[in-house]
Design a protein around this nucleic acid. Sequence first.
DNA 1: CAGTCATATGACCACATAGTCATACGACTC
DNA 2: GAGTCGTATGACTATGTGGTCATATGACTG
Lengths: 222, 222
Amino acid sequence: MPKPTFHNLSEAKRRRITDAAVAEFSSVPYAKANLDHVVKAAGISKGSLYQYFGGKADLYRWLLTSWLPERKMAAIGAQAPPPGASIWQILEQAFVAGVRFAVAEPELTRLGIRFLRDHELEPALAEVSRQHRAAADAWLMHLLQQGQARGELRADLDLSVAAGFLAHALGEGMLDQLARALGLDLHEMLDEPGVVGTLTEDQLVTLVRHVTSLFRDGAGVP
Amino acid sequence: MPKPTFHNLSEAKRRRITDAAVAEFSSVPYAKANLDHVVKAAGISKGSLYQYFGGKADLYRWLLTSWLPERKMAAIGAQAPPPGASIWQILEQAFVAGVRFAVAEPELTRLGIRFLRDHELEPALAEVSRQHRAAADAWLMHLLQQGQARGELRADLDLSVAAGFLAHALGEGMLDQLARALGLDLHEMLDEPGVVGTLTEDQLVTLVRHVTSLFRDGAGVP
DNA sequence: CAGTCATATGACCACATAGTCATACGACTC
DNA sequence: GAGTCGTATGACTATGTGGTCATATGACTG
């Protein structure tokens, strides 16, 4: 976590530093991320960085556990679902919010994806990631149980299996599908700023419905 | 690719080197993998390793593009599906073969998973991975089209979306589900050699059926 | 203006580790 | 036994980079 000095800096300077760090950590895996790039891009000296943060791991941890979640919250907002919403509406809302964020902030998305892939490196981060997973899991299981009780789900569904797939589908999986729809690789898509913007709201919602439809009743063709 | 010298070595020595390399590359990401560990574990000198391979990247590439596929083929074998098989039988067979391999060879599985996660590092490997993906994709799409033509699929299914999910489900996703069934994290599961053996053939097949059932007709509860 | 404090600096150090090379070994030939 | 050829060795070099520290700047105080 940042040292007090960091909080005393001007908003603009903090921003320069954060931007530089995000750019670096989102473009290469943690082990390859280079603090010299960060300080150069931020226009500060190496010594200063160590006046603000405890080190590389500290900076990375702060970005992922404090800064990124804040940005995400700010961007998505905690939209309460309408009172009588079906679990499909709730899921759809979550899916769409996630994809909209990815479209609006491809760099932050890349940062998050990188984290998913090498969180095992920093034991402290592994714990963070485990908690995230557990929270998402609990939320999904609760939702699915509710759905099953209301008869909104296919009756033959194994909830645990479904929750596992939805967890993936809500995150990376959805982005993969998007990339697929554009004929690209996930990384290619996130690296090209313009391309995601070509997706229409309509395409997006259609894609989301195709995903959720897997868990709803089929049309029942024999 | 290995230099000619490597092929002249005794089977046993080649084996020691390969085992050491697999152990290293499967336990840490490529950037962190240390050739000194490899030579020590293999009981050879650093110079020798460079007599056998062009360098770190060369060794890694060979493991993933030649050695691992061979081992996989040997372990799974190219079982032709029975002539009149439904796509569900074919998929089930593929799923089960994949999981059996993971159970039998957790270290090789870890190696493969690591590769999936940092293939972007080595441009040459990115190409390899792209080809794998494309091949898997083509196979799945073909299978699904066949299934749709025969009416074995839910009629409302978007084939492209389904193929995307199946691609994940056949690989990492299936392993994730397995770990979930054991109450573990994917990496925890692969790191503990004993634990996977506790799964019965029955549990395994049941899990696989739960996954494929997502794409089949639901029981149709309103 | 002297003193003090927070902040800034970048040359520098410490260390890890990919890759090299001069040298040695040993089997096989003549 | 001298020559030669494929192989083995590990000390060494080159490089990249996380982290440190003596020194500086400059604002504010009395």
